[in-house]
């Protein structure tokens, strides 16, 4: 399932004094079975864009094509939305706010029940999803409200994973988590990608982009300014994109400048760097 975004614009509060154009004529394609990172400053239109991917909002103009589904400006013409949302699921910022059931397992099973799966079957598949995010049996019958922040978030992610979507959209999945929680979530994302899921990741953290993303899309004030691979992005002059270059990339580049002959495009994390240095 590839995603085509064609000339999409979005304006908040159209025809009022508070009118803001969040996206301006954006077109690009998101490749199947890759991790695509969408980056940009606050207010660049990232969140607006990903909300349109599963028709939670509709573009003011332009259209989005996800496989056989089409999302256009007229909400009434967008057919099979519920079906679409089963194939492409979104996890928003601070997803722990969506928890509401009495127990963790019930909350995770809730999504499946909405698609008509029987209670026992839903709970069973919920348990699998919970194990996938690294929560064992001891969590199943606890209240989601007594968990820690990182655990809550993992429950919320399990609540989406249980639907087994082909495309997973994550808005800042690591915001407000400690390093350990961040690592668990990111490893999970990588694992899901290895299972063949397309991942779309909105983030501010350039280390994540360098380490995990196959593709990167840069938005600036509602315009698409770059699409390509992360290492290439960081090699561009950073001034006009005003990005923060990840320390690892800076360090590798400094090594090259000092005369070490390593291939900077293959370095994604510290292990890669060590491998590169050893190879020489």
């Amino acid at each position: 399932m590839s995603i085509k975004i064609e000339n999409v614009s979005y304006t908040y509060l159209k025809k009022t004094p508070n009118e803001v154009e969040a996206l301006h004529n954006v077109s690009f394609e998101i490749k199947e079975k890759k991790i695509t990172a969408i980056i940009g400053h606050t207010g660049s239109g990232k969140s607006t864009l990903i909300q349109m991917l599963n028709a939670l909002s509709t573009p003011t103009s332009g259209r989005i094509i996800v496989d056989r589904f089409e999302i256009g400006p007229n909400p009434k013409k967008n057919k099979n939305i519920k079906e679409l949302r089963r194939h492409i699921a979104s996890i928003f910022q601070f997803p722990e706010y969506q928890l509401f059931e009495e127990t963790v397992e019930k909350d995770v099973a809730f999504g499946l029940k909405n698609y008509g799966v029987k209670q026992e079957e839903a709970i069973k598949r919920g348990h699998e999803a919970l194990k996938q995010v690294g929560l064992d049996e001891s969590f199943f019958s606890r209240s989601p409200f007594e968990l820690s922040g990182g655990e809550k978030r993992r429950v919320a992610i399990a609540g989406i994973l249980v639907l087994d979507p082909d495309i997973l959209v994550l808005d800042e999945p690591t915001a407000g988590l400690d390093p350990e929680g961040t690592r668990i979530i990111l490893d999970l994302i990588k694992e899901l990608n290895n299972q063949g899921k397309t991942i779309i990741l909105v983030t501010h953290d350039m280390n994540i982009v360098l380490n995990y993303a196959d593709e990167v899309v840069v938005l600036k004030e509602g315009n698409l300014v770059y699409q390509g691979v992360p290492s290439e992005l960081f090699s561009l002059s950073s001034d006009d994109l005003s990005l923060e270059i990840p320390p690892l990339y800076q360090f590798s580049k400094a090594l090259i400048d000092k005369g070490l002959n390593i291939n900077i495009n293959s370095i994604k994390n510290i292990d890669d760097l060590i491998k590169e240095i050893n190879r020489k």
């Binding site: 909300q51 599963n54 939670l56 519920k82 949302r85 089963r86 699921a89 979104s90 996890i91 928003f92 997803p95 706010y97 969506q98 928890l99 509401f100 809730f110 999504g111 499946l112 909405n114 698609y115 609540g159 989406i160 639907l163």
Partner: peptide
């Protein structure tokens, strides 16, 4: 929250009273 729950297949517009009730609960509690 409505958007988050919609991503989990909650339909706030269609469905009978029972479905609507669950939908509202999933909105009100959070």
């Amino acid at each position: 929250i409505m958007k988050a729950q919609s991503s989990r297949g909650v339909d706030f517009v269609h469905g009978g009273i029972g479905k609507k009730f669950t939908a509202i609960i999933s909105l009100i509690i959070p």
